[in-house]
């Protein structure tokens, strides 16, 4: 554990809590892609199956359980409790275009051809692209509420901090997880355009982010 990894995990947690609280307090999930949230729940579900097979640390177990619980709670709020506010007409990203290549790649490129390893690899690749339905939705509607952009900012920050964590671990421990690093870098690149808009429009304009 190093400071970048810890800060990354905290950013990830903050992002998820921001989204959950936003939906809970406003009793609305308008502008939120339910598809992205289902994909994230799938990411956690397939990655954390090792909760049943290996013990890493108390921190590891607690965080995994929290991420799983919060992601399912978010999906529940969107599709059950506040489904009347769900903007399904603008949440039209074709998820199968992500799932098919990701499933294919996870069978081709993995550390071991075992069910758990393939599912772990699947979760890593899927996480890299799971935000695309949300970004697609923002592009389609041309705007995002500021709280939604704060959520995306912390999610992107988490990815950037994980890269710093990998640089640190490579130098300090000789640790290098090629699958995680490559897809983590790809994932972070998706946020760069958003980061630019966030700084130039949301922070300076202090309001909704609208696209030109």
């Amino acid at each position: 554990m190093n400071i970048f990894r810890l800060a990354g995990d905290v950013s990830h947690l903050v992002a998820i809590i921001i989204l959950l609280l936003k939906i809970w307090r406003s009793k609305s999930c308008a502008g939120i892609s339910g598809k992205s949230q289902v994909l994230f729940a799938l990411v956690f579900s397939t990655r954390y199956l090792d909760l049943f097979t290996v013990f890493v640390s108390v921190y590891n177990v607690v965080m995994k359980v929290v991420f799983l619980a919060l992601s399912y709670a978010t999906v529940y709020l969107i599709y059950m409790r506040f489904r009347n506010s769900y903007d399904s007409e603008n949440d039209t990203f074709r998820v199968e275009f992500l799932l098919v290549p990701v499933i294919g790649l996870s069978f081709l490129e993995n550390y071991a051809f075992t069910p758990l390893e393939i599912l772990w690899t699947f979760s890593i690749f899927l996480e890299a692209v799971a935000i695309m339905p949300q970004l697609f939705m923002i592009t389609k509607t041309g705007e995002a509420e500021s709280i939604t952009t704060h959520y995306l900012f912390f999610l992107g920050l988490y990815r950037a901090l994980y890269i710093a964590n990998w640089v640190w671990r490579y130098h300090m421990e000789g640790f290098f997880d090629q699958i995680a690093v490559v897809s983590g870098v790809v994932q972070t690149i998706f946020y760069c355009d958003f980061f630019y808009l966030y700084v130039t429009r949301v922070l300076r304009g202090k309001g909704k982010m609208s696209l030109p």
Binding site: R5, D9, H12, R47, D50, T53, V54, V56, S57, N60, M63, K64, F67, Y111, A112, T114, L116, E117, W120, Y162, N165, D177, A180
Partner: peptide
């Protein structure tokens, strides 16, 4: 498990 990597990150 044998043949599987230990994934200690979240």
């Amino acid at each position: 498990a044998e043949g599987e990597a230990l994934h200690d990150e979240l």
